[in-house]
Amino acid sequence: MNIFISGGCKNGKSYHAQELARDMARENSLPLYYLATMIPTDEEDRARIRRHLSERDGWGFETIEQGRNICEVLTGSTLSGEKVSPEGVFLLDSVTALLSNEMFLPDGFMDESAGERLAAELADFAAKTGNTVFVSDYIYSDARTFDRYTESYRRALALIDRTLAALCDRVIEVSYGFKYLYK
């Protein structure tokens, strides 16, 4: 089952997503993968990654690092060198980080086509795995229009969210620990 989860910041999305992914893997005796999307650029990032790794300790996740071109995961390896099984359960946390990597390139260039491309890649990823939990962020209720870069990013993320919400079997909004099931 493919699942899409979104909601506000620090509302418990990641924790709920981890529970769902773990349960899905246990029930079907499948490998459990965590897709680490952050590309570290400094010591603060590396410290955050170490914290995330220790937070997932004991959950049974195999970590896969992939900051761009997400579908390459399916023919790649985990951090510990095991070959990835596309039949496994994948937790992608988060779509938001992945879009940042695809859209804002290291040379300072912004790829305006990243939203459409990533929406298609993630739809492909969902179809190929069938057991992915996607986590996104609901960043659409500000009372202002941002600069061109931010507005392009919001529009692109919304396109991805709508695409995933349409094709996933289950769509959940997490709001301060409460869950609402749209599907």
Binding site: G8, Y140, S141, D142, A143, R144
Partner: peptide
Amino acid sequence: TDISQGIVPMDPKERSWR
């Protein structure tokens, strides 16, 4: 459009609008 859940705008007119 629900514009109620973001940062409080600096601009007084945007605050009134929100």
